[in-house]
């Protein structure tokens, strides 16, 4: 019991750090695509080229892509990023604070947040056939205002 209490305490301390990792309030007014990924996650490899393209094409329209890495070992993430370079923001969350807060149920999972800061949709997994519907969703949110 003591142990679990200690764990709970350390978790709430970690949860307080979640805001420092990802400050969504500062991104208000923009469409934010938050993607949770890890080096060991096979579909994540397929999502990176698409996210690069999205950031390049739609960045000026107000799209911000933030990829949250959940690898415990930072070198694994670095290795992945060398093979699959990212042209969008990458946040490192080795303690898994943010996926806990977002309620991630599988890897990868992405969240699409509108310009008012509301989570509009959640997408679990990534297949190449998901690219078009996701692009469409992002475009709709970008032009909502």
């Amino acid at each position: 019991m003591l142990l679990s209490l200690l764990l709970l305490a350390s978790r709430s301390a970690l949860a307080a750090n979640g805001g420092q990792l990802l400050d969504l309030a500062a991104l208000k007014g923009q469409v934010v695509y938050v993607d949770f990924w890890a080096s060991w996650c096979a579909p994540c490899r397929e999502s990176f080229p698409w996210m690069n393209r999205m950031q390049d094409e739609l960045g000026r329209d107000g799209l911000v892509i933030i990829a949250v890495n959940v690898d415990h070992d930072h070198s694994d993430a670095e290795h992945f990023l060398r093979e699959h370079p990212a042209r969008f923001r990458v946040v490192f969350d080795p303690d898994g604070v943010l996926p806990g807060q977002f309620g991630v149920r599988g890897m990868p999972t992405s969240f699409l947040i509108d310009r008012d800061g509301r989570v509009q949709s959640r997408h679990a997994g990534f297949r190449l056939t998901d690219r078009d519907p996701l692009t469409q969703q992002i475009r709709v949110l970008l032009h909502a205002h």
């Binding site: 019991m1 142990l3 679990s4 209490l5 764990l7 709970l8 949770f36 890890a38 060991w40 996650c41 959940v70 690898d71 415990h72 070992d73 694994d76 898994g96 996926p99 806990g100 991630v104 149920r105 599988g106 890897m107 999972t109």
Partner: peptide, 23 residues
Amino acid sequence: GVLVIGGCSTLGVKPWQREILAR
């Protein structure tokens, strides 16, 4: 009994903790 229940409260591998299982 209560102690045993408390011990199970933090078990379970979360989807983002499957690093080692995925090896």
